[in-house]
């Protein structure tokens, strides 16, 4: 009877984890499409760098101040779409710049495809091996703080080689965060699919932006 209870609880837990995973990937795919549409709108309208920065700040204000109030209700889904829409909007000036230079379309598509392959490869690795990467948490968060500090310095010094080093570091950190976030979902560390979607979306967004920057620099167009 005791064993039966343990098996039943284990099955319930696995079902709950699968539900979080399925809902996360469903919401993530829809929000990525919406974000792409908003990036297209942003390019068509031709928003400025200042407006792009305003979009990013608005998106993070939503995540920091609004999302915690709605993350356990369906209203949270609308906050996720508002967040990803603003993040997509912020990509406009960068995409317009790369698409305007020779071979820029190829660079953008390579960065987009590369981001997809990295995300699917890393997620697939965690989902098939079911390895727990939560031990990377301390390293990843401290690494992120170091990178953010370096990025603040580089805003004022604008050293190209330093920018490339920061982008390379962000690509590695976001890859680590994909392993970390996915393993937290499948091991029950993250049980809220709205928060999980925002985390994975940010990993993908940062991966794409920094991969595009590196590919743009090495293609000789930057």
């Amino acid at each position: 009877m005791n064993n039966y209870g343990q098996v039943a609880r284990g099955r319930e837990s696995a079902l709950a984890t699968n539900k979080v995973l399925r809902n996360t990937y469903m919401l993530l795919s829809m929000s990525l499409i919406f974000s792409g549409v908003m990036a297209g709108v942003s390019m068509a309208v031709g928003i400025s760098q200042g407006m792009a920065l305003g979009s990013i700040i608005g998106a993070f204000v939503l995540v920091w101040l609004v999302l915690p109030r709605f993350e356990n209700s369906t209203a949270g889904i609308f906050v996720v779409f508002a967040f990803t829409g603003l993040m997509g909007l912020s990509l406009g000036p960068m995409l317009s710049y790369y698409l305007a230079i020779p071979n820029g379309g190829n660079t953008v598509m390579t960065a987009l495809g590369g981001t997809g392959v990295i995300f699917l490869g890393l997620s697939g690795y965690v989902l098939t091996t079911r390895k727990d990467f939560s031990f990377m948490g301390g390293f990843l968060f401290v690494g992120l703080l170091v990178i953010l500090g370096a990025a603040i310095l580089n805003i004022f010094f604008s050293i190209p080689a330093f920018s490339l080093a920061i982008s390379s570091g962000i690509i590695l950190l976001m890859s680590g965060f994909i392993l970390f976030d996915t393993s937290r979902i499948i091991h029950g560390g993250e049980t809220n699919y709205i928060r999980a979607t925002v985390s994975l979306y940010l990993n993908i967004h940062n991966l794409f932006v920094n991969l595009l920057y590196i590919l743009g620099a090495f293609s000789g167009d930057d």
């Binding site: 071979n103 190829n106 660079t107 390579t110 960065a111 590369g114 392959v117 990295i118 490869g121 890393l122 390379s168 690509i171 590695l172 890859s175 680590g176 991969l211 590196i214 590919l215 090495f218 293609s219």
Partner: peptide
């Protein structure tokens, strides 16, 4: 993560 580095180097060579 080294596999990711290798893949990024491959992408750089492609562009």
């Amino acid at each position: 993560l080294l596999a990711v580095v290798g893949f990024v180097i491959l992408l750089i060579m492609m562009v």
